[in-house]
C-alpha cells in the first residue's frame, strides 16, 4: 500500500560503531506520513542508537538519511529539529533544575521584543499544552526534578509535540508509566497519527506496541532482522524475529535475518 508514496523518512544502510562495537550495522528503516512503525528488539539491539542518529544526537559512520525523498544533512539535534523531527528520549533528557515551561522551550525560547525571555508567554502556552496532555498537572513553578515519573514523561512528550513535529520518535515512552498513563500515551499516539505525523515507536516489549503499530521493524545485534506489516504477522512470529532472528514468510528479511540455508 505504501509503495506509491514517498516515505517521510528513509534511513539507508546506516552504520555506527563505538570503539569497535558495531552498535548499528547497515540498518535501513523507513516511515510514511500518518504511520506508526514499531522498532523492536532486545535491550542492546541498537534501537536507541539508530534513532539517535536520526535525531542528530550521534553522527553516523556511513549510510544516508532521506526526508521526503531528499538527502538530509543531520549533524546535530538542531538540524533534526529543522526537519520537524522531535524526539522523546529513553532517558527523557529533561533539565531537572528548571521548570516545565523552561523545559518545553529549551533551545527555542520565546522572547520579548527586547530579546529577554518571555516567561509568562511560555508558561501560558505550557499550561495550555499540559492541560491537554495531563489535565491534573499543576506544578508549573517547580523544577521538574520534584515531579513524578509520569509527570516528567508528560513534560518530555509535551516538548516533542509543542513545535508541530512531522516525525516523532518515542524511545520506550511508557517504560516509567503505570497502566493508566500508558493508555493515555496510546490515545495520544492515535491522535497524532490522525494528524498525519509519522511515529517511530521504540520498545523492547512487543505487547506495548503491537496494537498501535502499522508495521514493525525488528533489530538484533545492531542489524535489522526484518520488516513486516502488523496485519501480516502474529505476535509470536514477531517474538521469533526478536529472539531468534527468524523471519516469517510474509515479512521482508533484512541483513540481520537468520541464515536458513
Amino acid at each position: 500500500m505504501t509503495d506509491t508514496r514517498t516515505p517521510l523518512v528513509e534511513m539507508k544502510n546506516v552504520s555506527i560503531s563505538f570503539g569497535g562495537i558495531h552498535a548499528v550495522d547497515n540498518a535501513s528503516i523507513d516511515l510514511y506520513p500518518g504511520e506508526v512503525v514499531a522498532l523492536l528488539g532486545h535491550n542492546g539491539a541498537g534501537k536507541s542508537t539508530l534513532i539517535k542518529i536520526l535525531s542528530g544526537a550521534y553522527k553516523r559512520d556511513g549510510g544516508e538519511i532521506l526526508i521526503n525523498g531528499e538527502p538530509a544533512e543531520i549533524n546535530n539535534p538542531r538540524d533534526a529539529k529543522k526537519y520537524g523531527i522531535e524526539t522523546i528520549y529513553q532517558t527523557l533528557a529533561v533539565a531537572d533544575n528548571v521548570d516545565a515551561a523552561a523545559n518545553l522551550y529549551l533551545g527555542r525560547e520565546l522572547r520579548t521584543p527586547w530579546g529577554t525571555l518571555d516567561d509568562v508567554a511560555m508558561e501560558a502556552k505550557t499550561r495550555e499544552v499540559m492541560g491537554r496532555l495531563n489535565p491534573n498537572f499543576q506544578r508549573f513553578k517547580e523544577p521538574v526534578k520534584a515531579l513524578s515519573g509520569g509527570q516528567r514523561q508528560s513534560v518530555a512528550i509535551a516538548r516533542a509535540i509543542l513545535f508541530n513535529a512531522r516525525i516523532l520518535i518515542m524511545d520506550e515512552p511508557t517504560a516509567a508509566l503505570g497502566p493508566q498513563e500508558t493508555a493515555q500515551v496510546g490515545e495520544l499516539i492515535k491522535q497524532l497519527k490522525k494528524e498525519g505525523i509519522g511515529i517511530f515507536l521504540i520498545s523492547h516489549d512487543i505487547h506495548d506496541v503491537f496494537d498501535l503499530a502499522d508495521r514493525v521493524s525488528v533489530m538484533k545485534n545492531g542489524q535489522v532482522v526484518g520488516h513486516a506489516r502488523t496485519e501480516d504477522v502474529t505476535k509470536d512470529e514477531v517474538l521469533g524475529m526478536i529472539i531468534l532472528g527468524k523471519v516469517p514468510p510474509k515479512a521482508i528479511p533484512g541483513p540481520g535475518a537468520m541464515q536458513t540455508a
Binding site: A57, G107, E109, L117
Partner: peptide, 23 residues
Amino acid sequence: RLRFGRYVFAIGGNQEAAELAGI
C-alpha cells in the same frame, strides 16, 4: 532574563539534555 542564563542553568541541571535540546 536572557537565554544565555537559562542555558547556563539547564546545562548545570543536565548537560546531556541541554545538548539534545540543541544548545
